[in-house]
Design a protein around this nucleic acid. Sequence first.
DNA 1: CTGCTTTTGACAATCATTATCATTATGCGT
DNA 2: ACGCATAATGATAATGATTGTCAAAAGCAG
Lengths: 142, 142
Amino acid sequence: MVVKRNTWQREAVREALGDTDGFVSAQGLHSALRDSGSPIGLATVYRALADLATEGDADSLQSLDGESLYRACTPGTHHHHLICRNCGLTVEISADPVETWARSVAADNGFTQAAHIVDVFGLCAECSRAAAQSGTAQADPR
Amino acid sequence: MVVKRNTWQREAVREALGDTDGFVSAQGLHSALRDSGSPIGLATVYRALADLATEGDADSLQSLDGESLYRACTPGTHHHHLICRNCGLTVEISADPVETWARSVAADNGFTQAAHIVDVFGLCAECSRAAAQSGTAQADPR
DNA sequence: CTGCTTTTGACAATCATTATCATTATGCGT
DNA sequence: ACGCATAATGATAATGATTGTCAAAAGCAG
């Protein structure tokens, strides 16, 4: 691969990722695109996502059950997420204290080009209530 | 499952995990045990590891290529990692400011049972130097 | 020791992701 | 605008880690 070409598929992925608010799995993004009428292939979504990640236009992290999740990464707006592990509700949160902490910790250890993954999972107010009522407040994170 | 039983297999896994210094994949631990003469089964290693993780005796994180890595975890010590995305060097970091921040952010939004993912990626001192010299500071994590 | 129940372990099943490879389409030179 | 070299696509097979299954083999209480 010496020259990179522009295809509508790549753009579609980029756009779909941008339209999504929280995190999406590659598979999820693929079916979303399919539902929107795009006959895009699964492998292509994976490739596009990987490219976006390498170019810095997307962030990737691993979900608790091993899926790779992606999110659009608008340069300039850096924020994190508070995610309900039951209903999937996602709240954007800013984490200024964490930003500075991450930078200093990295610097203290001689690391450069520090990026960080910071996300908080929990049960949102509603799901907390539901869980508390249903006897077993046992919420298996898996 | 009402009663938990003690088997030599479970102990073997616990011990093997303790003897290992860094992180091990389930598969890696399994073959290590096999090499040591234990005729333990792969599925059992997975189960034991999962149990240890739920009991808080082990930490688990996902490697960059999707494997689940485990490590012995002294109960009570909660910490995060600073990982070199080039050579894989891992430094344990404590993140007290982040802990409190995570809790308060979660509480502010009505979330309960907050867990968090906090990991910092970067280039360690050595790799930074190497990258700076080799013209293209492009380090593909994959 | 006996019996009931958990645990094991070999193997099949699953799931996400990656490789394959023939086909299509893009970008550049003309 | 046309054609060509070649990168990109996409259907599908392959891979690899993890989990489910279930009969057989322990553990533990009495």
